[in-house]
Design a protein around this nucleic acid. Structure first.
Lengths: 144, 144
DNA sequence: ACTAAATAGGATATAATTGTCCGATTTAGG
DNA sequence: CCTAAATCGGACAATTATATCCTATTTAGT
């Protein structure tokens, strides 16, 4: 569904959000350990999220990553996915046709529209706050 | 969503089904041309579909690919997807966690279950016959 | 000023996917 | 029997995704 990069990105952002809610800034090392991802690759993804103003990064000693508290409620999964994988999940034909649309639909066009819309809505309506609080309450998990 | 291989596979099978319904066997060359895919790569995919008893292949002059007429109704997209991409679309966690399940769900587990189920049902309920007749009636398209 | 800890970013390595090429084999027809 | 047309299958090539490594820069604390 998503690329590995995107999976790590969502997991990273969720972990950062959880800790930002508790006032803690977290380091790359800690993030990678806690979400069980390759450190250097995760670094690249965090750079990307930082450039897209999804997370804030602080260099130097006691540096790390955090997310502005007021932002956590507003940040939706769709923005993270978009920053990393672009819009290819929602857009484009299920069978890979370049010019597939309602006028000249591929044989599964209509059926895909529904599923893709559900996915899009889900990502657009799920906030990092919701992700993080699920973790906080021990209802959900990020590892393994 | 699907791999390129899988996209070509579905388009190939659909084109073969359409022609089998009309009693014509079609060659690799024709298939690749009509579904707009790389010839040699498509050959590999057709080999795979043949080994999985999804299409029948006939070697030699006047050879090519076809699908048993009685099979066209029963062959579902899910079988093609499964032969090429396996079950990774339905199975496995949206965030890439190995041990994500209802007991220890990731933060989007429940939301993904619904979407994945819809996708699975759609693939399990869409027959090649349905794909092909949409083409036949000019309602849907396979090219571009 | 120095040091340690941290991110930034470029270069490189590895793996998976996508794609090509070519010789072997099969088969219908002349 | 020969030829042309076709699939089969193995080897290879190119591209993209994933992952690593190293150096530069920044920053807090001493």
């Amino acid at each position: 569904m998503f690329s590995k990069a995107c999976e790590y990105g969502i997991r990273s952002a969720t972990y950062i959000a959880l800790n930002s809610l508790e006032g803690r800034r977290v380091s790359l090392k800690e993030i990678a350990k806690e979400i069980d991802s390759p450190v250097a690759f995760t670094a690249k993804i965090l750079q990307l999220l930082s450039k897209n103003n999804i997370v804030d990064s602080v260099k130097g000693a006691y540096g790390g990553f955090d997310i502005n508290r007021t932002k956590i409620d507003k940040l939706m999964l769709s923005e993270i996915v978009n920053a990393i994988d672009g819009d290819k999940i929602y857009v484009g034909c299920g069978l890979g046709l370049k010019e597939c649309n309602a006028d000249k639909p591929c044989p599964v066009h209509e059926k895909f529209v529904g599923i893709r819309n559900d996915l899009r809505k889900m990502l657009e309506n799920t906030s990092l706050y919701e992700m993080a609080t699920g973790l906080e309450m021990g209802l959900t998990y990020l590892k393994r």
